[in-house]
Structures are given as structure tokens and as C-alpha cells.
Simulated scan of single mutants.
Amino acid sequence: MRAVVRHFISPDIDLDDFRPEEPADFSFLLQVLVGPSDSEGEESLELIVCTPRALERRVASEGVVFGRPLVIVESPDISRILKAVRGAVERLEAPSWDALCGKLERLGIYEFEDC
């Protein structure tokens, strides 16, 4: 069984027209709606997309930042970011949806994690 990306959503930005004021310093939540390739349905995987500069500011503010669910990028090229996320998700394969969800959790925060 494989995962397939059905939709991308962000409550923070317009994915169709993202132009940050500072292209080297931004961060936003990206929700990836993912489902099994062989049936209907979808569940959410949350990622934080950020630049090294945005991450540096966060570390300076918080002192310690754990890596998951960060996706660290060099530019606000949304098509490149979404293509990379889609590729990472759709390369995942497992014998069951539950096993596949365990792999999704390695990338980001899965909707039913710890349930």
C-alpha cells in the first residue's frame, strides 16, 4: 500500500500566491491531506515549512527546538516545496494503512498520532 497526497492546505498563507516580505525569513503551517492509494479517504499530516533564518530566530527565542515536523527550505518556491513534500509522502509504502501512518509520523504530526 502507498500513500497519496490528495490536497495541500495552509491556514497561514495563500498557497496560490505566496510572496513573503522577506524571502529568506518565513515560516508557515502546511497541512497535507493524505490517503491510501487504493481507496478513498484522507487524513491530515501537519508540517512547519521554514527557512534557516526563521529557524535561527526560533532557536534564539526558545533556546531548544526539536526537528519534527520541520521542513527547512531555502526559498519561497511553493511549487518546489509542494513537489518535495508530495515526493516524500508518496514514496512511503507499507503492508497496511496503520503501518503507513507510522511512517507518516516520521515526517510530521499525523492527525491520529497517539490515539
Rank of each mutant, 00 (worst) to 15 (best):
S39Y: 03
L82F: 04
E21C: 03
A94E: 11
V73D: 02
D114A: 04
I9S: 03
E22P: 05
P52E: 07
E40Q: 10
G41M: 02
D16K: 14
P76A: 14
P36Y: 09
R86K: 15
E42Y: 02
I9K: 12
D25Y: 08
E62G: 04
A60N: 04
A3Q: 01
R80A: 15
M1V: 12
L45Q: 07
D38E: 14
K83C: 08
S75A: 14
A99G: 15
M1R: 05
D77I: 06
L92A: 09
F112L: 13
L82I: 08
C101R: 15
V59K: 04
R68Q: 12
I13N: 00
I81W: 12
A54L: 10
C50I: 07
P76F: 12
L47Y: 14
L30K: 08
I109A: 04
R68D: 02
E93Y: 07
D14I: 01
D16V: 10
L15D: 02
S79Q: 11
F8V: 00
P11A: 00
V85G: 00
R58T: 08
R57D: 12
V34N: 01
F112S: 10
E56F: 13
E105Q: 14
V32C: 07
V65K: 06
D25R: 12
I78E: 03
S44M: 14
F28M: 08
P20S: 07
R91W: 05
A88M: 13
V73K: 01
L82G: 00
G87E: 13
I81M: 08
R91C: 12
L55R: 15
D77T: 06
E111N: 07
F112H: 15
P95S: 15
G87K: 08
L15V: 04
K83R: 13
E93W: 03
E90T: 05
V49M: 09
T51F: 05
R6S: 02
V89C: 00
V34F: 05
K103Q: 15
R6F: 02
D17P: 05
A54Y: 09
L29Q: 12
L70K: 05
L107P: 02
E46P: 01
D38A: 06
R86N: 04
A24L: 10
E105H: 05
R58Q: 15
S10N: 01
C50F: 03
E74T: 12
R53T: 14
D38W: 06
